[in-house]
């Protein structure tokens, strides 16, 4: 079983978000970069599946050289090989085009992405890739098992869950619950140094641009209600805020 896992490199979840250059650029000063949490879950499940069925896991990222620490981590937890498309990712369409052109040169049985990247929150790459490669896709998947080239999946739907079946190859986006991330050990870190990491030059152009950023408006300040008279809150929510 050959699995491709798409990794996006994002600011750590505790990052305080600020902008520079007149609010046109994200301020990367002091930012710690991590593997997108959903992608980490996707990677772990991919490793589990290849341990169960034999096969290989290829990690791919569209990113500049500074993403290599994260790629090495993917290799250290067990990915077989890694690919980096040497471009700054701006747009999901551009990212998906790059990954699709790589994926079309190899026969992957499964292509995993995360539900969304926690920086630009596109939630688009899985669907774009599937359509570009003419493959089935399932979004926000919490569970996958594979038997004889048929995947049994569970995904979140509005107001519940759905159980689906789909024959391979397919593209999916991983939702929380998909797997518990693994922590690399010393042996893995050493082994990662000798695993193949190929670099591909980009071909796709981006279709959107980020003109400006803005932080949410600061709150007016909190109105405190005495705990002994907590019921007054309900009245305020009804008459003042008019939300109930």
């Amino acid at each position: 079983m050959k699995i491709l896992v798409c990794l996006s490199v994002v600011p750590d979840t505790t990052t305080k978000i600020t902008f520079t250059d007149n609010d046109t650029k994200f301020n990367t000063t002091g930012v710690t970069w991590i593997m997108n949490p959903y992608d980490e879950m996707a990677l772990t499940r991919a490793l589990e599946l290849t341990e169960q069925h034999t096969g290989s896991v290829t990690a791919i990222t569209v990113g500049l050289a500074d993403t290599e620490a994260v790629i090495r981590k993917a290799l250290a937890v067990g990915a077989t090989e890694a690919v980096r498309v040497n471009a700054a990712p701006i747009d999901a369409f551009q990212v998906a085009s790059e990954i699709a052109s790589y994926a079309s040169t190899a026969n992957f049985d499964l292509i995993f992405t995360g539900r969304e990247s926690i920086d630009y929150n596109g939630g688009l790459v899985a669907g774009l890739l599937a359509e570009m490669l003419n493959l089935p896709s399932v979004n926000v998947v919490t569970k996958i098992d594979v038997n004889d080239s048929v995947a049994k999946l569970e995904r979140d739907i509005d107001g519940g869950r759905e159980v689906l079946e789909c024959s391979l190859p397919l593209v999916l986006s991983a939702q929380k619950e998909f797997a518990e991330p693994r922590i690399p050990n010393m042996r893995g870190i050493m082994a990662a140094r000798t695993k193949p990491l190929s670099i591909i030059e980009p071909a796709a152009a981006n279709t959107i641009t980020f003109a400006k950023f803005e932080l949410p408006k600061a709150k007016q300040g909190v109105k405190m209600i005495n705990a002994d008279n907590a019921g007054a809150l309900i009245e305020l929510l009804h008459n003042e805020a008019k939300v109930i």
């Binding site: 630009y120 959107i208 803005e214």
Partner: peptide, 14 residues
């Protein structure tokens, strides 16, 4: 559009 998981907004052009 919302970016950084609710921590900011971006203005996107095409």
């Amino acid at each position: 559009k919302g970016v950084f998981s609710g921590k900011a907004f971006a203005f996107v052009q095409t």
